[in-house]
Nucleic acid binder design. Structure first.
Lengths: 106, 106
DNA sequence: TGACCATACCTCTGGCGGAAAGGTATTACA
DNA sequence: TGTAATACCTTTCCGCCAGAGGTATGGTCA
């Protein structure tokens, strides 16, 4: 299937970008944020999240800041301008795809 | 990502089952039906469709009837009871997933 | 004290959905 | 006669994502 580009899935990336558009977050926090915001319906795996974060960094969509809290390392990620643009594009894509699928299933 | 089972994607299968829930159709017809019903937004590739149809047959979700029209072979597929149950489950799954994602993106 | 869970980062492997590309045969039409 | 549409199909490859596991620190409870 192809909606327009490629994003029938790729939902995970959109959700990460969306969470970070509100405020900086670190990885472990993102996993829980997605779970809580979706009322436990969505389960972001760390094996998906971390490669995703690294990829988005490499693409210039995210920046990162290292801190320490309670003796534990924390890597806070924040959206760049490019990341924000990508988020907007993905949300638009998402809404279009959902609308199209809903038209078919009635 | 995981919504509940695995169907963040798998949208193609749902759409095929949905089309066939209205009436029997053959493969080539399904490609166009999805395109037209979605106003050209969704593009079902044949390389995805045919393996999908064969898999659904093997799973007992579809039955098939061979005919000839205008000298061309046509293989009409129809939903079995099992296929109908699967369709209902997938639609429910789909709606839940969309709702969950929309909660996150707001 | 030692066991165990939560926090916090990460990697490797492999399956499967799906895109790209191409193949075969018949009919319709310019 | 050659090109497009109809109608079926396969092979190849990539990226998303789950499963499983690994490392280290801090807090809690027996």
């Amino acid at each position: 299937m192809r909606s327009r580009t490629n994003q029938v899935s790729g939902v995970a990336e959109m959700l990460v970008l969306r969470c970070l558009s509100e405020r900086e977050m670190y990885g472990y926090e993102l996993v829980q944020a997605v779970r809580e915001l979706s009322n436990g319906e969505l389960d972001m795996r760390e094996s998906l999240l971390y490669p995703l974060l690294h990829g988005l960094m490499a693409d210039g969509c995210l920046g990162r800041k290292a801190t320490v809290a309670n003796g534990r390392q924390r890597l806070y990620y924040r959206l760049t301008a490019k990341g924000r643009r990508r988020l907007e594009a993905m949300i638009e894509e998402w809404r279009g795809m959902v609308k199209a699928v809903n038209r078919v299933i009635g």
